[in-house]
Design a protein around this nucleic acid. Structure first.
Lengths: 292, 292
DNA sequence: GTTCCGCATGAATCGATAG
DNA sequence: ACTATCGATTCATGCGGAA
């Protein structure tokens, strides 16, 4: 099996036109929030946000397969003491475009930005809007089942590396054995609330969302060999995770520094040797240049 | 101090007219959701929901003090595979009425309703929309502080260079004073995500929300002696909690069974004996009939 | 090898000050 | 008057070095 990762440098309003219609299984993205990342992106005024986004969502509607899903990570900012309404207006307008607003998942950010204000508390959640093209779409619920019990909710569901290491390290002290017991025990379907910490550590890349976020939705809405698209690639979290999970992916990024950074990391074409047929294909020369 | 609990039987569209303007400090309510509880309000169709609610929110705007808050517990239901949009439309329309949409809190229901569907998971959260009349409103943040994490123990022993720099930027005496505040502090401010289980006890009343929900907002937005209003009283959770917390309250309920049930439980006027003056007042005969 | 501990930092927001 | 910049506020997390 061959896994491709195609990344493009440019404005997704243009670059999306290259992507064929009905070709993508999952769009997972986190667009720049209104006026939020001014330094890196232009900074879209809250009043202009919907107007700016609609041509993009129209393209996304075109490239998504009828069975596909579009997961939009977004949160309205506070303007003049009030929450802006551009996200709601966007949902209403996207429905007019033909999108179905199927569900709203909540990302509960366990470590939210600190601060104190007279009229509000720290903002500790973001929206994960789930749009589809049709009522029948692919959803592989069994792939994201979680062990039952509070312990599992706080631990296994979160995909932080530290937790994984800690759990592995406990093997031998009797604790690791418990994990295997848990895994064999009853598993339950998750809910529409995801508990994940943001990544704010000393890595050289600063991702807008933790890897666990795209990972969960890639598991849920795609299978191996499917195609994932992130039109606002940023540091490439979606594509890196997709590649690791043997999904083809497309990434578009307007900032060349980010683009170059991702290009360094990504293997454009990887072959997974599963059966003889695949092995045979590997010997043939590959002409495809995925990264440009 | 005297604590009153006034409950009314009737449609809040009418009964609210009795409540004086600018007299309520907090409105906390959970209206019947669209097409849910059909018997009660005849079942409001999702398409008619906004139209039905706006006259009520207009009354609520009238009776709320300029420093008061309106907390609306609501969630859109699924209609034909899609989330309805009436909550969003309602927010947009209420803003036109003059409401400020200050914040959206999330109630994370730790034990959500069971079930399995092909296109979604269990719904485990509800909205708590916070509306105000003005940008300056009463908020007693200290009353809802929560225990701090282990963070404090390690952090405060030795101050990091970054923390020193951050604090040095503040000119003058701020530094030492600020640290001493932290040293004595064992609690932190909460976030805008509330983790509460639904109450599924065997009482004959089935409350829409647990007592912890109104309790948190009553603590946050009112002080003793203030007035709390619930125009969709139901089983009276808001009023019972308010009474226990020494807040006056008003409840309106259209279903007589609910009304009678709450009437049984509630003490219309309770006197809290705090100082001699109050004691003296107690001896005087009371004429007020609060429940009618 | 584990565990412990120090430390930087993050899609934040408000109010005051400056242009 | 209205907008842009800046300082102040504050907490959970994971990495890396130390014990």
């Amino acid at each position: 099996m061959e896994v491709r990762t195609d990344i493009y440098l440019g404005d997704c309003r243009e670059e999306l036109k290259i992507v064929p219609m009905d070709s993508v299984d999952l769009i997972f993205t986190s667009p720049p929030y209104a006026d939020q990342r001014k330094k890196t992106y232009g900074g879209i005024h809250p009043d202009k946000y919907v107007e700016w986004f609609l041509p993009i969502s129209e393209q996304l509607l075109r490239v998504l397969k009828p069975t596909g899903s579009f997961v939009l990570n977004i949160k309205e900012r506070v303007v003049n003491g009030e929450r802006s309404t551009y996200v709601m207006e966007l949902i209403l307008e996207m429905k007019k475009q033909g999108w179905l607003w199927t569900e709203e998942y909540i990302w509960h950010k366990k470590n939210s930005y600190p601060g104190k204000w007279p009229n509000r508390f720290r903002d500790s959640w973001e929206r994960l809007l789930h749009f589809t093209k049709s009522k029948k779409f692919n959803m592989y619920q069994d792939k994201v089942m979680v062990p039952m019990g509070d312990w599992a909710k706080t631990r296994l569901k979160n995909l932080s590396e530290t937790d994984k290491k800690r759990d592995e390290s406990k093997v031998g002290s009797g604790f690791g054995k418990n994990i295997s017991n848990w895994m064999n025990r009853e598993v339950a379907y998750p809910t529409n609330v995801l508990h994940l910490a943001t990544e704010c550590n000393n890595k050289n890349h600063s991702a807008a969302f933790p890897e666990g976020l795209p990972e969960w939705f890639i598991k849920l809405f795609t299978k191996e060999g499917d195609t994932v698209l992130d039109p606002f690639m940023g540091s490439g979290t979606t594509n890196i995770v997709a590649n690791r999970m043997k999904r083809n992916s497309i990434g578009i990024e307007i900032v060349s520094e980010y683009y170059e950074m991702v290009k360094e990391v990504i293997q454009p074409v990887e072959l997974y040797l599963i059966d003889p047929k695949e092995k045979y294909e590997k010997t043939k020369p590959k002409r495809r240049i995925s990264i440009r």
